[in-house]
Amino acid sequence: MSARPATGPLLDVERLGVDYGRVRALRQVSLTLEEGEMALLLGTNGAGKSSFVEALAGLVPVSGGRVHLRGADITSVPAHRRVRRGVSLVPEGRGTLPGLTVAENLDLGWRAVGGRSRGDFRQERERILRLFPALEKRVDSDCSTLSGGEMQMLAIGRALLARPSLLLLDEPSLGLAPKAIVAVHEALRTLSEEGLTMILVEQKALTIDWTPHLTCVLRHGEIIMQARDRRPTSEQLAELYLGRPSKGTT
């Protein structure tokens, strides 16, 4: 638990491994993220993307490696305490609670972190509703009546209430209409520009039309491509995802 100098990376992942029983989902994955950077994690189903962010959030046990947040080793910190340390995950499938309104869901997100005044909460809430104007109109609706895109915004909003230093998002565009995807991604870019460090996991690589600070492609639990400040071309991505077309197999 040695303190690193203040200029050290926000997130330092060292040879992280995740096993589900006998199945090795993640193998020795290493990644470094500076404060304020956005990382994009790509790959098909089963590549290990969800396992990676779930491991960072403390939701799955780690079979090897270390996770350092601002120099502190958080590898064995349990999930609920990681939230308070500043790691917030927006899970795949959103995880919003039906039967509760938008406002109540947000309230829950606030209570999860606890210890701050209602005044602060109102401020934060305002900030989030400004970021997601679509939500503002539906603030008192039962969240099960929300559209996919609105639910995704609510889920992100709830995670933001924890004032995270690292925001993790697991396939936020899954099941969303193209317009909603654009809206969500725009909101995320705004947050990134405001200095929030985030890791965005997506499968559909081509829906990202900007260049994140770090782009990684996962396959078989390993990073097979890592690029800084540049975007891989569609051809490169097609090859990484779909492989080179086979030459005469039949």
Partner: peptide, 13 residues
């Protein structure tokens, strides 16, 4: 080269 980990069901993947 793996450390023993508690079982997790496929559904949780």
């Amino acid at each position: 080269s793996s450390h023993p980990v508690p079982e997790r069901t496929e559904a949780a993947r």
